[in-house]
Design a protein around this nucleic acid. Structure first.
Length: 231
DNA sequence: GCGACAG
DNA sequence: ATCTTGTCGC
């Protein structure tokens, strides 16, 4: 892999503070109320990121599936030098850059985007999905495999069962069972969509496995790319 | 001060 | 996220 787009081994003193204030500023602009009728959706994208084996580059993958067939229309992969470490609460500063780069090659503007990470279920209501949605203008949904913040009970064991996830008296996400008997996922508003609709679309696209198809396709693409390179 | 902590 | 073989269950 080439182009170390900015290699920083660890955060510059103060850089986290800047990231924090940017999150507070941006979080106020997140749209949590978008509706999305069945027929206006043609393309649904899935977002996932990985890291090169030598840990110097981020690998960003964005899948584009046609709705309602869920056939793969396009997959965009890009790499960019790691410019931010993984710090809980600041994941977007590590992944957004490479994802924006991958977004440039998409053949269609996605009507809906499902992101592998939290939306507003974040300390300052600006998880990766919300941040990415705000920067791209996409309607995004946060679909995380584990918890960042919020308290929640265990949902029933069947697909569709869910429990509200509360943080400071606000329902920031729902812990949803996407398939019978699997570990539930944390679904939250990313940008331009309501929590109810976010849950609805994730359940609609999680037709075979725990995670929705768009994310699975992106994840597989990122993994394939990772193994195919020397670094 | 201590524990928690998306990917 | 990544490191990793076999193995329990439907």
């Amino acid at each position: 892999m080439t182009d170390p787009g900015g290699t920083v081994p660890w955060i510059e003193p103060g850089s986290i503070q800047q990231a924090r204030s940017l999150q507070e500023e941006l979080s106020e602009r997140v749209d949590r109320n978008g509706e999305l009728d069945n027929d206006s959706v043609r393309f649904i994208a899935g977002v996932d990121a990985s890291i090169s084996r030598d840990k110097t580059h981020m690998i960003g993958a964005i899948s584009l599936l046609r709705w309602p067939q869920l056939t793969v229309e396009d997959v965009s992969i890009e790499t960019l030098g790691v410019a931010f470490p993984y710090v809980p609460g600041y994941l977007s500063f590590r992944e957004v850059p490479v994802l924006l780069k991958a977004a440039e090659h998409l053949t269609h503007f996605p009507d809906l985007v499902i992101v592998d990470g939290q939306g507003i279920a974040h300390p300052r209501r600006l998880g990766l999905a919300s941040h990415l949605g705000l920067v791209t203008g996409w309607r995004t949904i946060g679909c995380a495999k584990s918890r960042l913040i919020g308290e929640c009970e265990e949902p029933g064991r069947n697909k569709g069962a869910f429990k509200p996830c509360l943080h400071k008296d606000e329902e920031v996400a729902r812990l949803v069972r996407t398939r019978d008997g699997v570990k539930p996922v944390w679904i939250s508003t990313g940008h331009g969509i309501s929590l109810e609709n976010a849950v609805k679309w994730v359940l609609r696209t999680a037709i075979r496995y725990r995670l929705p198809e768009p994310i699975r396709v992106a994840h597989k693409a990122a993994g394939r790319f990772r193994r195919s390179t020397i670094a």
